[in-house]
Amino acid sequence: MSLFEIENLVVEFQTAAGPFRAVDGVSMKVNAGEVLAIVGESGSGKSVSMLAAMGLLPWTAKVTADKLQFNGIDLLGLSPSDRRTIVGKDIAMIFQEPIASLNPCFTVGFQIEEVLRIHLGLDRAARRARAIELFDLVGIPNPAERLSHFPHQMSGGQCQRVMIAIALSCNPKLLIADEPTTALDVTIQKQILDLLMRLQAEHGMGLIIITHNMGVVAETADRVIVQYKGRKIEEADVLSLFEAPKSTYTRALLSALPDNATGDRLPTIAEFLSDDQIFAGAV
């Protein structure tokens, strides 16, 4: 049985211009200890599908799915309060903007200890000990001292480490990282990705990385799902995706990478692919 399973997920938003289908029949599976990358450009519905699965979308969104299962539990059938006992504990999520993800009014120590109190019910001393341990784990120097810092006193990379520490605080079985390094510098990105990969291997977590960056996919994923305009275009293991992409869209996407530039100009997608061709070429 896979750890996390989605079948035929559809998400629609009510907007001024009528209903807008952000996710259109996406299915995926993640096993324990596996790294799945969901890659796509803006508007591909890659973040929305994960937020929908976690029940984090606003009320204007209509979410339907044939199957939405985590560890054998049907998430769709759960009441919001039951869902909250799973989301944040067994499924954790980190976001793109680390500084905005932390509450600026409280110290980072307070924020991580709050999670420990709510989900694990630890007492004060145990919370603090665990918080220090977690900060140490994610590579924050002087963890005991850092606990009393506010988010604005830390850099973006440090804040993302704090977010990862909070996400890991309850030993989640699945971690969803939504563009975890997009807002960070390259050298910091490298450190955060290395950290994520190390923690994933140590804890045997399932990890879903949502990204638009092909380099990040290449450096982290076991398996890759390519999305375009809410639909799944291709699913493959990482090596075959880069070595022999099956869908026309993935081929076009890879050829647009400046790394792979051969001539004077980069091949572009719009020049030779319409939406219909992209969907027809999906596998």
Partner: peptide
Amino acid sequence: MAVAEIKTTTPPTGLAEFWFYF
């Protein structure tokens, strides 16, 4: 720019959008 221009719905004009929210 075919990728960006094909949209499922056309964006409403300013006035129509205003009236929708109002």
